[in-house]
Design a protein around this nucleic acid. Structure first.
Lengths: 174, 174
DNA sequence: CAATATTATATTGCGCACAATTTGATTGTT
DNA sequence: AACAATCAAATTGTGCGCAATATAATATTG
């Protein structure tokens, strides 16, 4: 067993010790707070263009991919189900930025496409990522650290593996 | 300028290049997904003891700290306001696990205390952290990586220095 | 081809999360 | 003491996020 693995094992052993119910011992709590904080940070910027954060995510997909896309396809990207997406997409439809129509090839599906207004909105959205970084008050170093942390989250929660290092390959094969 | 700083600066320069509106370029999106995933993972475990995830967080605070605590104090720990907490605490009150009463010393405040039932619930909650790790299907290595990522999130979103690990606590008390 | 199973979306109901506002208590100022 | 300013919690209204269920279309099976 190599030194790295030993260190992880020692850390893992320590997990159950002490008071596992202390708030500052919770692994998930900072993730929960970060999730709330992020939506809060986007809100004032997105409200200027009439979007909520999950609506913005839908638009990112429609702008980047071959729209129209089915509700299910959008949901699999965002890890959201029709119970969340259907009312959200209806609000976006009544705002005039997306179209909803049954797929002729499979009447179970509903295809979501962009309207002219929805396509035009992209121009207004282009400044959002830059503005967010400005609003966040984070230094380039903070952002870099956040990005590194996010690569981990992406691997663990989105099964979106970055190219594995030799060390990780080693660990997997054992 | 040292090598580390130069690397961060180069990464920061690259941020604006390409398509900043691509979903897989979003720094915040994995945090959003992780937040949703975490609440989803806790739900079946917590429903066994009649709690939601934010209610569980309130209980963690009340179990660890000198209860009773004001709504505002709880809110500052969880970064939630009275608009979220008041109805949540009322539901917990009607479930019989907390008490709500005006602070005699300052009638603006409402103090939240544990009932006997609320204190007893702690025993049932003790197995939750361990069970969650089991349910998550994460390896010790995954958990360690997550923990490292979370230390960053805690610093950035909770302005919090990393707390001592259980192993370190152990060492200190000896 | 009919019966059954599966799939995609919609609906219902509940509990957050939060902006905006209100109500009532306390503090600060003159 | 009077009055404005501040503060703590509650209230109102909107939009998720999701479990459970319903509805309807497609696929599968006998």
């Amino acid at each position: 067993m190599d030194k790295e693995t030993l260190e992880v094992d020692q850390w893992f052993e320590g997990l159950a010790k002490g008071n596992p119910l202390a708030l500052d011992r919770q692994i998930c709590f900072p993730v929960y707070v970060a999730g709330n904080s992020l939506v809060r940070a986007y809100r004032p910027l997105l409200s200027e263009i009439g979007l909520t954060y999950p609506q913005y995510l839908v638009m990112l997909i429609l702008w980047s991919e071959e729209a129209p896309l089915s509700v299910g396809t959008i949901g699999s990207h965002l890890m959201l189900d029709s119970g969340t997406l259907t009312p959200l997409l209806k609000r976006m439809e009544s705002a005039g930025i997306v179209e909803r129509r049954r797929d002729q090839a499979d009447e179970r599906r509903v295809l979501i496409g962009l309207t002219a207004k929805g396509r035009a909105l992209r121009k207004d959205a282009e400044s959002i990522p830059g503005k967010l970084i400005g609003c966040s008050g984070m230094s380039p170093t903070d952002l870099h650290d956040l990005h590194q942390a996010v690569i981990t989250l992406r691997r663990l929660f989105l099964n979106d593996a970055p190219p594995a290092t030799a060390a990780e390959e080693e660990a997997l094969s054992e």
